[in-house]
Design a protein around this nucleic acid. Structure first.
Length: 275
DNA sequence: CCATATGTTACTCG
DNA sequence: ACGAGTAACATATG
């Protein structure tokens, strides 16, 4: 589920919750397949007694910078969650890993669909180097993205979902970005004008920052939906202009929002004002 | 039973 | 080489 704003919300709730500077005093692996690398027995040995120095985000990855030069990366994929609970709390449904911090707090990784992955490495670049730039970076190099767009014959929607071009957009924010920029998701990337490409990047930044401000998009209230580490839901679902707005009137031109499968994903757009 | 789901990757076919 | 389509990962919901 989580896209850039949701991951950012999780990271800030971890920081706000004082998880930085804590020591990993114990780990319990319940579902070992959620450890990507190294193998889970090495993982449990290596993670022990590491201090969490810093928590940050790159694309949709959560980065725990640990002592001794290690990094633990967490990708929540569709339904992954991190939750903080008391040490006395018993195992939660779909809980796959629990870290004991400072012998008093439990940081749990919970994931209904089990797509989420955690891995531990000394080489942060190995996973992150493939990622395109951050759309909300104030120093974002527009021309670098423009040249990539102009080299691709893919539909622009597919390109927005490609993390190696721009990192952090997923299905919801890609549709919101295209609506904001008035671009049809089926449009072939290299046919975009300079003006459209600029609108696209400005819109991506706008919808992502709005998502962060609203603490993420939680479409429903169950375990499938996004929540921060205290199980607080986001509010951005109340600010969506097209995603899941099928058959509703476009907020800009009043035409009917349509739904279509593009790049194997449900895509919502206004056929009238998105050209 | 069927379709669908906020992600990513590997594979096939043309 | 490229893009589109499909399946896979695994589970739950309507």
């Amino acid at each position: 589920m989580p896209e850039l704003p949701e991951v950012e919300t999780v990271v800030s709730s971890l920081i706000k919750g004082g998880i930085e500077k804590s020591l990993i005093t114990d780990v319990k692996i319940i579902y070992s397949k959620c450890i990507d690398a190294p193998d889970f027995s090495d993982f449990s040995k290596l993670i022990l007694n590491k201090k969490i120095l810093k928590i940050s985000r790159r694309g949709k990855y959560i980065i725990f910078s640990l002592s001794e030069g290690y990094f633990m990366l967490v990708h929540l994929k569709m339904t992954g969650r991190l939750t903080i609970t008391d040490i006395s709390k018993k195992e939660i449904k779909h809980e796959h890993i629990r870290f004991e911090l400072d012998k008093k707090i439990i940081l749990s990784f919970i994931d209904t669909r089990k797509f989420g992955k955690i891995f531990l490495t000394k080489n942060l670049n190995s996973k992150l180097e493939k990622l395109g730039p951050e759309p909300i970076d104030p120093h974002l190099d527009f021309n670098q993205i423009f040249s990539k767009i102009l080299k691709s014959k893919k539909k622009i929607k597919a390109l927005l979902l490609d993390q190696s071009i721009l990192s952090g957009l997923g299905n919801i924010y890609a549709d919101e970005t295209l609506w904001e920029a008035k671009i049809n998701p089926n449009k072939i990337s290299l046919s975009l004008t300079l003006k459209e490409m600029k609108a696209l990047l400005d819109s991506a930044k706008k919808v992502l920052l709005r998502g962060i401000k609203n603490k993420g998009t939680s479409l429903g209230r169950n375990a499938f939906n996004f929540a921060d580490i205290y199980n607080h839901f986001g509010e951005n679902q109340n600010f969506l202009n097209v995603y899941k707005q099928e058959k509703k009137p476009c907020k800009r031109c009043n035409s009917v929002i349509t739904k279509e499968k593009i790049a194997q994903r449900s895509s919502y757009f206004c056929p009238s004002c998105q050209r």
